[in-house]
Nucleic acid binder design. Sequence first.
DNA 1: ACGAAATAATTAGCATTGCTAAGGAACGGT
DNA 2: ACCGTTCCTTAGCAATGCTAATTATTTCGT
Lengths: 141, 141
Amino acid sequence: MGEGELRDIATRLHSASIRLLRTLRREDKQTDLSAPRLSALSVIVFAGPLSLGELAETEQVRPPTMSRIVDALVDGGLVTREIRPDDRRSVRIAATEAGVTLMEAGRDRRVRVLAGRLQSLADSEIRALGRGLELLERVTR
Amino acid sequence: MGEGELRDIATRLHSASIRLLRTLRREDKQTDLSAPRLSALSVIVFAGPLSLGELAETEQVRPPTMSRIVDALVDGGLVTREIRPDDRRSVRIAATEAGVTLMEAGRDRRVRVLAGRLQSLADSEIRALGRGLELLERVTR
DNA sequence: ACGAAATAATTAGCATTGCTAAGGAACGGT
DNA sequence: ACCGTTCCTTAGCAATGCTAATTATTTCGT
């Protein structure tokens, strides 16, 4: 496989992903959560419970920034923050039922829109996309 | 094709894209531009020249927000802003050479990292990924 | 056991980014 | 010439990003 072909695939995959998420992000306006809060909540629901440091690292922001975002999520009843008994410096952040529901509703809106787009593909094309997706999943995890 | 399979593909494609861009975004720290500025610059380079309203719409922010981001890019010499002669209410935003260079360097860093990941795939897998990508491109544009 | 160093989170203070409301300038139709 | 609309900017506020400093706790070395 030539060096250039790999770069070509990488470039196109990069911009297709940007376009895809840009499109789906429009659905988030129906949630009345800001983008940073929604993104943090989504990590807490999927990867949580976790510490503040882990959450900040995942979201690629500094701990003080995340600390205030968590404040807001706790205020909104979407998340709980507890001191860990085994290490009282650390904090355990977990989603509440309301948090899970809100986040899943948001993700479902996005997924529904995407699934709608995919309907224009033929069955064989869906299968081909599925095979490509398995490879993408292998590469991104 | 079953309803559920489409949803499954959509869900997985959604999260794979998020994971992918989250990973690649780490490379942006080497640029000393903030995320909103880098993203706006990238639109100006790729889709420009364009008006402020078009840019705000693309970036899904309000015009006042984008107006200030453009201020900063103009200050940094990455972008020019000119009144359109044919419609003097409107503004034509274009990248300077320095803007193009900066943005391409950033994108190349991201693409290089992604291409590196793809190297773990066999040639036949790269081709399968390429076929899936063509379908994704059709769906996202 | 004890003090020093390290670690986790928060608080304080600032720049940037997001918004809405309001204003100025230019265009378009009548 | 005027009125309404459109495009952008300015003003002012809340949220988000940062670094520096503080507090609380744990860990390490002696």
